[in-house]
Amino acid sequence: MFISCVVFLFPVLCWALTAQTPTGRWAGVTVLTIVAGVQIPLQNDVFGTDFQTTVGVALAVLVIVVLIVAPIVEFVPDRVVPLGRDAKARIGIGWTLGGLYCLVSGLVVLVVTATGLLGLGTATMPPVDAIGSLPEGLSITKTVAPDCSHDSDGTDCERTFYITGTNGTPEQVAEQVRQYLTDSKGWTFTQKTAFPGDSSTWKGSCWQQGWILDSYQACTWVEIKKDGKVAVVLSHKDSG
Rank of each mutant, 00 (worst) to 15 (best):
residue 78 D to M: 09
residue 59 L to W: 05
residue 184 S to V: 09
residue 45 D to Q: 12
residue 84 G to S: 02
residue 210 G to D: 02
residue 188 T to R: 05
residue 152 S to A: 14
residue 72 I to R: 11
residue 213 L to Q: 08
residue 124 T to Y: 11
residue 16 A to Q: 06
residue 49 T to F: 15
residue 53 T to I: 15
residue 14 C to G: 01
residue 140 I to K: 11
residue 128 V to G: 06
residue 115 T to Q: 12
residue 56 G to I: 06
residue 128 V to I: 09
residue 231 A to Q: 13
residue 173 V to R: 00
residue 3 I to H: 08
residue 182 T to D: 11
residue 81 V to W: 05
residue 205 S to W: 03
residue 59 L to R: 03
residue 231 A to G: 01
residue 179 Q to G: 07
residue 4 S to Y: 12
residue 111 V to A: 14
residue 208 Q to E: 13
residue 133 S to V: 12
residue 87 A to F: 02
residue 86 D to L: 14
residue 101 Y to E: 09
residue 64 I to Y: 10
residue 203 K to F: 12
residue 6 V to L: 12
residue 102 C to S: 15
residue 210 G to T: 04
residue 21 T to R: 15
residue 166 T to I: 04
residue 55 V to F: 07
residue 60 A to S: 15
residue 39 Q to P: 00
residue 162 Y to R: 06
residue 192 K to L: 03
residue 231 A to R: 11
residue 202 W to Q: 03
residue 134 L to V: 03
residue 110 L to K: 06
residue 171 E to M: 06
residue 106 G to A: 03
residue 121 G to C: 07
residue 202 W to H: 09
residue 202 W to I: 01
residue 18 T to N: 09
residue 15 W to L: 04
residue 71 P to W: 04
residue 68 I to P: 01
residue 137 G to Y: 12
residue 126 P to L: 06
residue 32 L to C: 10
residue 218 A to M: 06
residue 91 I to Y: 03
residue 236 H to D: 02
residue 171 E to V: 10
residue 17 L to A: 09
residue 175 E to G: 03
residue 180 Y to K: 11
residue 44 N to C: 01
residue 129 D to H: 03
residue 53 T to L: 15
residue 1 M to V: 01
residue 84 G to W: 00
residue 214 D to F: 00
residue 154 G to V: 01
residue 8 F to T: 05
residue 183 D to S: 13
residue 107 L to Y: 14
residue 95 W to M: 14
residue 122 T to I: 05
residue 28 G to E: 02
residue 146 P to A: 10
residue 99 G to K: 10
residue 38 V to S: 08
residue 73 V to P: 00
residue 177 V to K: 01
residue 184 S to H: 08
residue 126 P to K: 00
residue 50 D to N: 12
residue 136 E to S: 12
residue 174 A to G: 01
residue 160 T to F: 13
residue 18 T to M: 09
residue 36 A to F: 04
residue 207 W to K: 15
residue 122 T to Q: 15
residue 220 T to N: 14
residue 102 C to H: 11
residue 213 L to H: 10
residue 174 A to N: 00
residue 63 V to D: 07
residue 40 I to M: 07
residue 52 Q to S: 13
residue 85 R to D: 11
residue 189 F to D: 00
residue 145 A to N: 12
residue 125 M to H: 10
residue 116 G to K: 07
residue 168 G to E: 00
residue 82 P to R: 12
residue 87 A to Y: 01
residue 77 P to Q: 05
residue 97 L to H: 04
residue 160 T to Y: 13
residue 168 G to A: 03
residue 58 A to H: 08
residue 54 T to Q: 10
residue 96 T to K: 04
residue 74 E to C: 05
residue 134 L to N: 09
residue 21 T to Y: 02
residue 41 P to C: 06
residue 54 T to F: 06
residue 78 D to W: 13
residue 13 L to R: 04
residue 53 T to K: 15
residue 98 G to A: 07
residue 169 T to A: 08
residue 108 V to I: 12
residue 135 P to F: 04
residue 12 V to W: 03
residue 142 K to I: 01
residue 106 G to W: 05
residue 16 A to F: 05
residue 97 L to W: 04
residue 225 K to R: 13
residue 234 L to R: 08
residue 79 R to V: 02
residue 81 V to T: 10
residue 1 M to C: 01
residue 149 S to Y: 09
residue 129 D to K: 00
residue 23 T to V: 10
residue 1 M to R: 08
residue 196 P to G: 04
residue 50 D to G: 07
residue 104 V to F: 13
residue 154 G to K: 09
residue 231 A to M: 10
residue 69 V to S: 07
residue 84 G to H: 02
residue 228 G to M: 07
residue 27 A to E: 04
residue 20 Q to M: 15
